[in-house]
Design a protein around this nucleic acid. Sequence first.
DNA 1: CAGTGGTCTAGACCACGCT
DNA 2: GCGTGGTCTAGACCACTGT
Lengths: 265, 265
Amino acid sequence: MPYSLTALDPMDSRSLSTQLADQLRDLITSGEIPPGEPLPAQSELKATLDVSDNTVRAAMAQLRSEGLIDAHRGKGVFVRQPQVVRHVSSTRYSKQRDGQHNTSAFTSDLGVMWDQYSVESTFRQVKAPALVSELLQLGDEELVLERFSVMRAGNIAQQVRSSYFPLSLVKGTPMMDPNRQPVPGGVIAELEALGLVVTTIDEEVQARMPTPTEAHLLRIPAGVPVLAVTRVGWAGERPVELVSEMVLPADRIRLHYRIELQPTR
Amino acid sequence: MPYSLTALDPMDSRSLSTQLADQLRDLITSGEIPPGEPLPAQSELKATLDVSDNTVRAAMAQLRSEGLIDAHRGKGVFVRQPQVVRHVSSTRYSKQRDGQHNTSAFTSDLGVMWDQYSVESTFRQVKAPALVSELLQLGDEELVLERFSVMRAGNIAQQVRSSYFPLSLVKGTPMMDPNRQPVPGGVIAELEALGLVVTTIDEEVQARMPTPTEAHLLRIPAGVPVLAVTRVGWAGERPVELVSEMVLPADRIRLHYRIELQPTR
DNA sequence: CAGTGGTCTAGACCACGCT
DNA sequence: GCGTGGTCTAGACCACTGT
């Protein structure tokens, strides 16, 4: 153990557990305890620092909530490994249209091919919820097609999303077929096949902690937030698609946007 | 108290504290305990559910880490109020160039005027760190101007960022003046005044939990992540500015991007 | 089996807000 | 002063991983 811990001070304004968490955090962020390496056992910390079991555990809980460590029963507490980061670029949309048509937004995101991932979708016809109705500029009581999808790669979910389409636009089209297989080019290509050429996409990005359901589905460990993207696809002045929320685990994903500035008039 | 709690089951696969957290979460997300309202006192939960003090506290810790509640010593535990969300749009960049020039990216973000916020910056000349050197395409040992800024509005920090400029481009210019006041039009306008017209901006968005320093500076409560944006400004083929990290509290901020699709060839 | 982390209890003391 | 949440202790039992 090349590092050492200093005694805790009951007179310090910080609590004992916070002092311990601060020390361990320094060791982790400075690289003295590198990713994948174990922290000293909780029983050892308890003995060396002469504090109670629960005090040590409180420090661990703090570091876990910051996403710095993973604990494994029977093995130990380990510095979390950085994940392989997948870059989700906004250029995915234009790439779809350059004649290739072998990727959708999701596959180009992941840099994987069609047979390496799966999408599971469920469909419903529902009255548009308030947010959907507003963003799609629908009348009261108007119906929408709701599509809830889970995208998996390597058998673990990478993304969940719920999408909405005005029913008047997609009724009777192949988009209504619940057994429809994923289409090359993704939703944008599907819509284009219906004569709805998407010209503009608005994306609104927020971050928050996952719900327990999301954390379970996407295998999100403690202390890792999600990126939640709300997207509206426009065909000219008409909103034709709404992804009310696309939820991505933030430890594996970065979003990339390129902004071209207009030359000064 | 219009709602009620059901007894906890020691035989349930979930722990007692998780069962309690789940019950309370349901009450919160369903609106039965609306934002701003207090939860039952921990002493009351302890008595009604016949569990230990620490068990109740564990449930509270869980909900706090999800960003659902705020606890106040001497008062109680309250459902967290939704924050006023500020939309940071990528169109802020083009707006700066339409002749107005009275806002920078930050002020247009907040929808506030110049005298309502303050920026505090510190400057250094340093050898470019590895990431900076790579993204700015610098040679080894090349120097950069580092600018660390804290933006405040209403006296509370809204954003911290560190920016880097190749020293060869800004040496001897007004950008080096540590006492320089904020400039209308922001960094982009500053660079343009030096003959460096930024034509393209790349933004990479990630989310993570704040460091304790960030949490303190930006007044980020428990269970709220930050959005961290890495930005590169290009003048033609040449990278002229790097914001290595712009850190924003995710409960107050959403990022908006508009993507214009090219018509099919 | 010994060692790891996870949960729970009972009891103590402290810091803060309100009346 | 009383009720609130925050920290800490000592001790118990459980669940999992390794030898």
